[in-house]
Structure formats: C-alpha cells, structure tokens
C-alpha cells in the first residue's frame, strides 16, 4: 500500500490528450536548462502548454510534472495559484477587463456593461459559439491609457465602448488574424477608431 508516484508513470508522456511532438518536448526540456533546477522552468512550461489549446488539462500538468521532475500534485497546486493559468476549457478569446482603480475611475464600469451587452454574457461566461468570454482582471500596468482590456496578453488601451465593439467585430470577422498586429494597429493609430 505504498504511495503511487504518478509523476514517474512513463505512459503519461504520450497520452492522446497531450499529443506533444518531439520538437515541443525538446523545447520544453531545454527551458529547464536555463535554471539551476528543472522546476525553475515550470511557469514558462505551463505558459507554453496553455498556448496550445487555451487551457491546461490534467495531461498537460502531468507532462509538466514529468519534465520538471516534481509531482503532478505539486504542479496542479502551482498552476492553481496563478490567475493567468486556466484549468478549465476556455473560450477562444477570453477578454480580460481591468477592474482596478484607474480603469474604474476612467470608465471601466461602462466598458464592462458594453461588453456584457454586446456579447450577451456576464463575467465568467462564454458566448455560445465558444469565441469570447469575459473576465475581470487586476491592474494591467497601463493606467495612463485607461480603460484597458487584454486578450491573450495583447493590450487594447484607451478603450471606448464603441472601440470595444469594433475589436470584437474584427476578431469575429477574421479569427485567425494576429491579435498582436491588431493591438499594434490601434496603438500606432494606423486606423481611425470611431
């Protein structure tokens, strides 16, 4: 009746769920070499794994455990601590609306209300097509351009309610476009926002 060490179960590396190819595995393992101990790379590994399908499934956590040589329980505990890691399947474009002080003072509430209306969902919910969800996020460190939202780490600043609507429409129109490019476009003012 000894404790079962699931981290060392070799059959988990190639579970269907994770479908990790050799190149990805090599990349993740190489991250460990930057740190004195492998687990230093854990947060970077989890970010990388989350990029693949938008959240971290148990098989992702087990894979991370194997690579960093710690227990799956420990990885799960670490992943659950941080706000950016999603442990449940997420919408394709989770919209994070800053709810902290400067955005709040500069129209953040109105922005949230617009988002709710435009998307027909509340905080913590996703649209039925699985495309968008709404979350409150804490201060994004862009207080001088409030109010701000972020989608997959790309910041959309000085956001008026109508500009938010435009962004949603543009993403819907071309789901594969680069969010980074879209955000940059807004920042450099290449297109006039209504």
């Amino acid at each position: 009746m000894n404790g079962a060490q699931t981290a060392s179960d070799p059959s988990l590396a190639g579970t269907d769920d994770s479908k990790v190819d050799r190149a990805c595995l090599a990349e993740l393992s190489s991250l460990c070499e930057r740190y004195p101990i492998p687990r230093g790379a854990l947060l970077l590994i989890l970010h990388r794994l989350q990029e693949r399908r938008g959240h971290l499934a148990p098989s992702d956590l087990k894979l991370a455990a194997q690579i960093t040589t710690i227990s799956p329980a420990e990885v799960y505990s670490v992943a659950s601590f941080y706000s950016m890691f999603r442990l449940q399947p997420a919408a394709r474009f989770p919209i994070g609306i800053c709810r902290n002080i400067s955005c709040w003072l500069c129209g953040g509430q109105k922005l949230l209300d617009t988002a709710r209306e435009k998307l027909g969902i509340d905080l913590g919910e996703a649209t039925t097509d699985g495309l968008f969800s709404l979350e409150s996020v804490e201060c994004l460190g862009s207080c001088d351009t409030a109010p701000v939202i972020e989608i997959h780490g790309e910041y959309f600043e000085h956001l008026t309610p109508s500009a938010l609507g435009t962004i949603v429409d543009r993403i819907r129109a071309d789901k594969d476009q680069s969010l980074q490019a879209l955000a940059l476009e807004r920042r450099t003012g290449a297109r006039k926002e209504p």
Binding site: H47, F85, E138
Partner: peptide
Amino acid sequence: VVHRGAGA
C-alpha cells in the same frame, strides 16, 4: 535569464 510570472 528572462522569466515570466503568471498573474499574482
């Protein structure tokens, strides 16, 4: 080494 946090 450039490292990333994860929201905390």
